[in-house]
Design a protein around this nucleic acid. Structure first.
Length: 271
DNA sequence: ACGAAGCCCTGCAAGC
DNA sequence: TGCTTGCAGGGCTTCG
């Protein structure tokens, strides 16, 4: 389940091997992703150079000629750099064959991901134009979450997972950030103080940055490997640990469903 | 405008 | 052992 740290790690891993390289061919073996891979993708990309790659939320934006290739990894997608002649597996849905002899290979068993071609400004695309601020860097203002949350009755966990509020906070890190900030996942978003939101904002940054740092240690996996960084379970405080003891108090972690998502928290530490 | 539910898909675990 | 069933999950989409 790629969350923002995995997407960022993917970006950093592939960047030096893809940016500036020419795409010699595009092989699409399975176009049935979340949206169909455009049939004309090979002709659009072939012969062009990848000028830049950046990230917006969990989308990767490949600037190529007059447009952008938009890739989202969904929940089981990954990108790997492999020798271009490697035999594709069952879930290896498309390759960008580079002039270097390597290929950028997209793998996605559940096919929840997507690869789209967007002419012109990609940030204006329907899927990107309503995205909220990035949680890292300066674009998430200190009081942004507090300001936007006023009047909201949804659980705070659902609130911070809403990509219009802030991008890149998936289920795992929503759980972790709420634990770190000591906030109960079911608390109504509009009933949390400014001070506690500042703490939550810092917690979101902390868990995401920490995961990105750990991801950096597995960058070697991107070249010739399967391109999948680990999930760092050992560093997770609550996610996947329902029934285990809290690492901070004598309590037991509880698992519930919030907005159809598995949610783990400490009833004693989180209020 | 907001909140909740539905849907896409397949690997995996659990149950028989 | 092999089959069936249920679940997980990002996030767009639809419904209320």
């Amino acid at each position: 389940m790629p969350e923002l740290p995995e997407v960022e790690t993917t970006l950093r891993g592939i960047l030096p091997h893809v940016r500036g390289h020419r795409i010699d061919a595009v092989h699409v073996r399975e176009p049935r992703l979340r949206y169909p891979v455009p049939p004309d993708l090979p002709s659009r990309l072939g012969g062009h150079r990848v000028d830049a790659i950046r990230r917006r939320g969990k989308y990767l934006l490949f600037a190529i000629g007059e447009g952008n290739l938009l890739i989202h990894l969904g929940m089981s997608g990954s990108l790997g750099l492999i020798p271009a002649n490697r035999i594709p597996g069952k879930h290896d849905h498309f390759d960008l064959v580079l002039s270097s002899g390597m290929a950028l290979r997209y793998t996605d068993p559940r096919r929840f991901g997507m690869a789209l071609w967007v002419e012109g400004d990609p940030l204006g695309h329907r899927l990107l134009q309503h995205l909220g601020p990035e949680p890292l860097g300066e674009t998430l203002a200190v009081d942004s979450l507090y300001d936007v949350s006023r009047g909201r009755t949804a659980p705070v966990k659902s609130f911070i997972m809403d990509s219009r509020v802030v991008v890149g906070v998936g289920n795992i890190y929503a759980n972790e950030a709420l634990f770190l900030a000591g906030i109960h996942p079911l608390r109504r978003a509009g009933r949390i103080s400014r001070e506690r939101y500042r703490r939550l904002t810092a917690a979101i940054r902390e868990v995401l940055l920490g995961a990105i740092e750990q991801g950096g240690t597995s960058l070697r996996d991107f070249v010739g490997g399967d391109g999948r960084p680990g999930y760092f379970r050992q560093s997770l405080q609550v996610y996947g640990r329902g029934g285990e003891s809290c690492g901070r108090c004598e309590g037991t972690l509880r698992e519930i469903r919030v907005g159809q998502r598995s949610t783990v928290y400490c009833p004693r530490c989180q209020r």
